[in-house]
Design a protein around this nucleic acid. Structure first.
Lengths: 137, 137
DNA sequence: TAACAAATGCACTTCCATTGCACTTACTAT
DNA sequence: ATAGTAAGTGCAATGGAAGTGCATTTGTTA
């Protein structure tokens, strides 16, 4: 069990108060968040800082970007099961049409997709939309 | 073989010069287009008209929206093989990282995706990214 | 502690999506 | 045919999200 500080140092990211707060926020959130979500949670902080923090996290493979089709970029922590730094091919996300939340299904792998001759597949973005477990009860 | 006029009437869309032009443009284009693409093709027409035309087409299931991860919404004609009005589950698009074009692979079905208990899958958005057949030669 | 590098905050810009309103065009019923 | 109504089009403006430049602050290291 490592502390957040240790994790950031491991990734060669300088530890700052802001980054610790944002990281903790992401841990507590079980769903993917937009920049606005973070902004609303930290009204004292500047939007640019939040923006650049999340971009830093993204570069260092601490979070990954999710494009769930709502048109707004979302971010979620890369879990241990999430090997998006090694293999970019296994993103699988679920977007709830009811509560509008997007979650990572890290333990659900993406099946092999066949593409026509001449096409080279490098990366797959798969978003399943429907009703999440909370809303379907 | 039906004319474009007949097709529009069938879908309860009033036939106008603008709509015919835009429809023809979409037929000629073999790839998904952005609003800006259409705008550049019809510089005399207003952006709003093009926007609302494409929205009308979308509502009537003449075109479908594609979110290929570039952040810009694209549109493509619903082919006969594209039953996005009946069954929303078969979108499959290929985005070329080289030429930046997105095409519909209508004859390539999306495999059944398993989701955890409690989740209800209604719709799947699948975008494969890589190198298209033109660019890989 | 001085010096340098990185992080933060403020202001501003750009781009795409969307809407309100006035005007024009196309259909409908007399 | 024509008046009246509904739909389509064009202009202007707005809003939201993403991104950048620069000055200031904070943190690290010699």
């Amino acid at each position: 069990m490592q502390t957040i500080e240790q994790l950031l140092e491991l990734k060669n990211i300088r530890v700052t108060a802001m980054r610790l707060l944002i990281y903790k926020f992401l841990v507590n959130k079980q769903v993917a968040v937009t920049l606005s979500d973070i902004e609303n949670a930290f009204e004292k902080a500047d939007r640019t800082t939040l923006y650049r923090t999340i971009k830093t996290f993204e570069e260092k493979d601490i979070v990954h970007q999710i494009d769930d089709g709502t048109g707004i970029t979302k971010y979620a922590l890369c879990e241990q099961g999430c090997s998006c730094d090694i293999n970019k091919d296994l993103h699988l996300h679920f977007h709830c049409n009811n509560c509008n939340e997007t979650i990572c299904l890290t333990d659900h792998k993406i099946p092999k997709i066949k593409v026509p001759d001449g096409f080279v597949s490098e990366n797959v973005n798969l978003v399943v939309k429907g009703i999440c477990d909370k809303c379907s009860r």
